[in-house]
Design a protein around this nucleic acid. Structure first.
Length: 640
DNA sequence: AGCACGCCGACT
DNA sequence: GTCGGCGTGCTC
């Protein structure tokens, strides 16, 4: 009789021992009886050590579902590591690692259909000298991490397209991570010109069946390039020869809720196990990445200083709006842009606590009763929405505090901006790109198509518009409400602000010299770096700042969160955590109320640990603090 | 995650 | 008396 440890996709780290007369490969899907229900599990390992005392009965595996394992030993190792590092149940990592259909009882057909032509060589542009040098310097044979740090429009994509071609010619796959779902579709067009029918996409907007098929085709090598968002970090990489993380600075690679893994970091871990190269690409790399590339030399640093066609970088100016949504200067620039039949992009920053209804008489702010965040006014649906719990509320006619009818909305939403433009510029084509309009696939696709075809005069959007769209006709970019980033309780606020501006500015003037107007006054230290397009200078100064404060990359943070519908319980749990940490010798902040102290009716308290020995700290937490009604966020990027 | 078990409040 | 609320604990 053989014994196997089986893992389920439930919120548990524990695996369960089952027996079978058959020889089963590690990574196979099996059907077993679990708590009197039939359940699909994954065989993690063969085992001989069984504590008969702990286990009442060892049940027999009902059946092996497929003729091949569904995950590799390398992925099992990755799941174990991710569970340990991110202090999350292994079963939850497993759930994130496979498409949901892999947990249904249907057998998987691993038979491979043959594919014909994979590369269209005519569609590759010639690399310029700067690009060529980088292309030739990147070693595809072994594990190494390469940062391509290039201004927007310098042709970073073209470099990795050439490298992917080489990888495919060697019979290997390539994985490309992008930050937004809309980008997978935009990239697909570009990639399919070159790699024909072998380009797959993988993200959460696919139907369960589509997602499963894309996952399977990449695994079987019917698809050779996969364009995916965060969850693609767990796809089968056994035949993969190159991993690209595009816009590596983007926050979306970090999952906000449990398991709060970082796809970029996990892929570097996997690449090391698999001995394959990684490319991180960005116009505004994170302080952490830049530090590893320039100071500790763990990564290789490649810089692209010139834009393709030697197009000049845009002129960046600051101008504070007088009394309106946009300053007179911006309005004049917009007028000119419309007359010249160019596209103008307006970024309305949504981060922070910026837009709310306020009583003009007593200052009462309308907040979500469940989440204690200000409600956002949505004109189209004529309601107030909570962006945390999605509930919507009727617009109150008068202030509940002082009964005044003088209710005003403060802050600039994308909708309000759209309306302002329609009132002031008359009959023009305005498109809006934000989480609301991009939520349906068709809609997002239409907006992007219209943009690319030059049918739009003004595009208004959130930070989504700053991510990678190559729109030639944009030569005016206006950035509004950026200062609200500083309202965030975040040591990365300066970095987020400068990087968002530089990235959005990069949308401007891809064909001819463009203009960028920032509708805020920033600290002059930051304004100087921005005007001079000196992101590297900013990074260097920021590294020193982080060092003096012992912030990442010089330390690791771990955020411990206690949430409960009962405020007393939430408080008690964080207090209990505090008592354990108090004598541990680790330095930490708190416990304090979270900046947003109530979300979805749950009261929130947190403690933030700062450590220079992450593994020692993880070990301590694993031993002392797990299963105490606490949530953990290792290397957090958000501190709400 | 489910599902059973178990101990207190509001009904027939 | 008992129906049912959801807190706690277990699943090889």
């Amino acid at each position: 009789m053989n014994y196997y440890n089986v893992l389920f996709n439930i919120a548990l780290s524990k695996s369960f021992t089952y027996k079978s007369t058959q020889n089963i490969e590690v990574g196979s899907r099996v059907l077993v009886d679990f708590n009197n229900r039939k359940k699909v599990g994954i065989v993690l390992e063969k085992t001989t050590q069984i504590n008969i005392d702990d286990i009442k009965e060892i049940k027999e595996i009902i059946s092996i579902l497929d003729n091949k394992p569904v995950i590799t030993e390398e992925l099992i190792k990755t799941i174990n590591f991710a569970s340990y590092y991110y202090l999350s149940p292994r079963g939850l990592i497993l759930r994130n690692a496979l498409p949901s259909k892999a947990f249904s009882k249907e057998p998987i057909n691993f038979e491979k259909n043959s594919i014909k032509k994979q590369i269209n060589h005519q569609k590759f542009f010639n690399l310029n000298d700067e690009q060529k040098k980088i292309y030739e310097s990147i070693d595809l044979k072994i594990f190494n991490v390469n940062l391509i740090f290039g201004v927007t429009g310098s042709g970073k994509t073209e470099i990795f397209l050439h490298l992917i071609r080489d990888v495919i010619e060697k019979g290997k796959n390539a994985l490309v991570l992008v930050p937004e779902i809309v980008l997978t579709n935009q990239y697909k067009r570009v990639f399919e010109e070159k790699f024909l029918y072998t380009v797959g996409v993988y993200h959460s907007q696919l139907t369960p069946k589509q997602k499963f098929l894309e996952w399977l085709m990449f695994k079987k090598q019917e698809k050779r390039v996969l364009l995916g968002t965060r969850s693609a970090a767990f796809v089968d990489l056994s035949d993969t020869g190159l991993i690209v993380v595009d816009e590596e600075n983007d926050d979306s690679y970090k999952q906000e809720n449990t398991p709060s893994y970082n796809a970029k970091d996990l892929l570097i871990y996997r690449a090391k196990q698999l001995n394959i190269p990684v490319i991180l690409s960005s116009a505004t790399p994170t302080v952490e990445t830049y530090y590893k590339a320039s100071i500790t030399k763990k990564f290789k640093l490649f810089k692209l200083n010139n834009r393709i066609n030697n197009c000049e970088l845009p002129v960046i100016e600051f101008s504070k709006p007088e009394n309106n949504l946009l300053s007179i200067k911006s309005q004049e620039y917009i007028k000119k842009s419309i007359e010249e039949k160019q596209t103008c992009a307006i970024l309305v920053n949504r981060r922070g606590f910026a837009h709310f209804l306020i009583c003009g008489d007593c200052g009462y702010i309308f907040r979500c009763p469940n989440c204690n965040v200000s409600l956002v006014y949505h004109k189209k649906t004529k309601d107030l929405k909570c962006h945390f719990c999605e509930s919507s509320f009727e617009i109150p006619k008068k202030c509940p505090n002082c009964s005044s009818y003088n209710i005003k909305d403060v802050g600039t939403g994308t909708q309000k901006m759209e309306e302002f433009l329609r009132e002031n510029f008359g009959n023009i084509n305005i498109a809006r790109l934000d989480r609301d309009t991009a939520s349906s696939k068709k809609n997002a696709y239409n907006i992007v198509s219209n943009l690319l075809d030059g049918k739009i005069d003004i595009i208004v959007g959130t930070s989504m518009i700053s991510k990678g769209y190559d729109i030639e006709k944009i030569n005016l970019v206006i950035i509004s409400n950026i200062e609200s980033i500083f309202a965030l309780p975040d040591f990365r606020a300066d970095e987020k602000c400068v990087s968002l501006i530089i990235q959005t500015a990069g949308r401007s003037g891809r064909k001819q010299k463009g203009n960028v107007i920032i509708e805020s006054k920033l600290p002059s230290r930051l304004e100087n770096f921005i005007i001079n397009h000196d992101y590297e200078g900013f990074l260097k100064e920021e590294i020193n700042l982080r060092k003096s404060l012992n912030y990442p990359p010089f330390s690791h943070l771990i955020r411990i969160l206690s949430q409960n519908t009962n405020e007393k319980v939430a408080k008690q749990n964080i207090q209990q955590c505090f008592e354990i940490l108090k004598n541990s010798g680790f330095s930490f902040l708190g416990p304090t109320k979270c900046p947003i102290d109530k979300i979805k009716n749950k009261y929130r308290y947190h403690i933030i640990i700062k450590t220079n020995d992450i593994f020692k700290t993880l070990h301590f937490i694993t031993a002392e603090l797990l299963d105490k009604n606490l949530n953990f966020d290792v290397d957090p990027i958000s501190f709400f």
